[in-house]
Nucleic acid binder design. Structure first.
Lengths: 237, 237
DNA sequence: GTCGCCGCATGATCTAGGTCAAATTCTCAA
DNA sequence: TTGAGAATTTGACCTAGATCATGCGGCGAC
């Protein structure tokens, strides 16, 4: 593995404070690979063999049932995924695929569990990461159960705008059909909802979203930190 | 705290394998209290001060937004809750209230974090517990996003039946309005959905549910371990 | 008992959002 | 540049499930 890659990974909250020995043991057996777009990295139901760390690109976590499929999360660098399955040595509950060309480090689950047992500082970092993932899904579930689709969209736009520097203007970081799936609606309905939000201070041109009236949009969204953050999480950003 | 209580708690997966010193440190500052029904234990947004362990009774985790409210989970003994908020020292994302008279042990967050740092075995147990909670919410989210309400109900009935010894007959462990909220539907619609399932092998009389035709019900439910378990989790059981 | 409340069921109606189909725009490779 | 296929939009329509209103039945307070 390249030293520059290692340095970048070392800077992750998950690895920042652990001992050099533990870090070396973790990365010794690890792969760091580049994948083309649309590559299936893992499929739900399979055994969890590797902790994945996305260092560059974009990865979709999704799940399917009975011919249907839904986007659970879209990850940006630098994030870890499927930590929970890996820790518990359980089958994945979600599948993962690259959306664009992506670099991903894969750490063998056995190494992960060994390092976890050997280094208390690493254990602490793992727990923080896991707790963050947990809270992120809880937010997603609350969003789905408590809000109508237009409200979810309005809040998504506000969150996204804030994460892009709060300039009131940003590019959607994913295809609209995936955003629709993430928000729990159909692409058709997302299209209509975006048009409907014109009256509430949102202008859309292709992937460029502009918030023309933050107050009006805020009235629709009624954002709350208990659903919309801020908190470091692995949801779409 | 009574010795019998302590023994029971000690037997929890979370505490089973930790050292006596760590366990003593954890329980020294802990309370073990009995609460009447319908008592608010915690409210979302508040700071997380205590890890809660339900030792007897039943507790509802719920969340609200903008005048709406939804049941996220209903806990049975013995379960821990709000571990994630406590570990991260972050605000609760969910509120909790007793449904019936309940006994709950509360361990100060500071003690929890101290024990976590001091005892690697405890740290490992915490991570397992957290990973289980995470996977439980992911299942809930998949259930909500991938299934129609009747399908969710059919699967709930199958899960519940299995957890009650698979006799094909069990008592609903919660009020129907709470079940409806947990399943993401209105009480009216739950009532109709239960009636509709008569054609698919389910008979309901009050809180008593009887599966008269497991094959037919299975055809509707199309259960999968990737949503419906089995896995120790903190969802309704 | 019986009064009043609450959980639940049922019917009538409404609507958010899904489905289907067709037109339009975008992407990208030849 | 051009053409094929995909993404998106738009319109027409439909349905799952919400809402509203009413009635029933159990249960606790008095």
């Amino acid at each position: 593995m390249r030293d520059t890659d290692l340095a970048e990974i070392r800077a992750l909250a998950l690895f920042r404070d652990i001992g050099d020995a533990a870090f070396a043991a973790l990365t010794r057996g690890a792969y760091h690979q580049t994948f083309p777009p649309q590559v299936n990295l893992i499929s739900e139901g399979e055994a969890a063999d590797f902790l994945h760390v996305l260092t560059d690109g974009s990865v979709e976590l999704f799940a399917g049932w009975s011919g249907r499929e839904t986007t659970m999360s879209v990850l940006r660098p630098v994030s870890t995924f499927i930590l929970a399955a890996c820790i518990n040595d359980a089958p994945y509950l979600m599948s993962a695929r690259t959306l664009v060309q992506s670099r991903i480090m894969m750490i063998p689950g056995s190494d992960l569990r060994a390092a976890f047992a050997a280094d208390p500082v690493f254990a602490q970092a793992i727990v923080r990461e896991l707790a963050g993932c947990y809270r992120s899904v809880v937010r997603h579930a609350k969003d789905l159960k408590l809000r109508a689709s237009r409200e979810r969209l309005a809040n998504y736009i506000l969150r996204q705008s804030q994460q892009s520097g709060d300039a009131g203007r940003f590019d959607l970081p994913l295809e609209k059909r995936l955003l629709a799936s993430y928000l729990g609606m159909t692409p058709e309905n997302l299209s209509r909802a975006l048009k409907a939000l014109r009256d509430d201070g949102v202008a859309v041109d292709g992937t460029l979203v502009t918030i023309t009236d933050p107050v009006a949009l805020g009235r629709v969204a009624r954002a709350t930190p208990l659903i919309d953050g801020p908190e470091p999480d692995e949801a779409i950003r």
